[in-house]
């Protein structure tokens, strides 16, 4: 089993990243590359699906902080969805819902871009 992997799907100009495994200081580099790749190619409308993510540390949280401003400055956003209660509690405890839109369903996140 891989520690962490990302799958990417594009739907009507929106890029959806599917995270699988655990996101810590070691694996967060992969997520950073994936988001950097999208932003570098002027793709600013991003949905991140957490359905298969089992763990996140502050290193993982930091990756989203690093790209959200650029995405929003270019009429885009990084919207988060499908978190388990365990993962959501980490985001919530630190106040991330102040800055990030977090949806229960992927469809809801996608619809918000239209």
């Amino acid at each position: 089993m891989e520690d962490f992997s990302i799958k990417n799907r594009e739907l009507q100009g929106i890029d959806i990243l599917y995270l699988d495994g655990f996101l810590d200081a070691h694996t967060s580099v992969e997520l950073e590359k994936a988001l950097d790749n999208l932003i570098s190619n002027d793709k600013y409308k991003i949905v991140v699906n957490f359905e298969n993510l089992t763990y996140i540390s502050s290193a993982g949280l930091g990756v989203f902080m690093a790209f959200i401003e650029t995405a929003r400055n270019n009429s885009g956003d990084i919207k988060l969805c499908s978190m388990s209660e365990k993962i959501y509690n980490i985001f919530d405890m630190l106040g991330f819902p102040i800055l990030f839109e977090i949806y229960k369903e992927e469809n809801s996140a996608i619809e918000k871009f239209s």
């Binding site: 502050s58 902080m65 690093a66 106040g95 991330f96 800055l99």
Partner: peptide
């Protein structure tokens, strides 16, 4: 944390 998010800070949450 309000200032943290307003300024899009990265890191320092450990």
């Amino acid at each position: 944390m309000k200032e943290y998010f307003n300024n899009f800070k990265v890191g320092g949450l450990g």
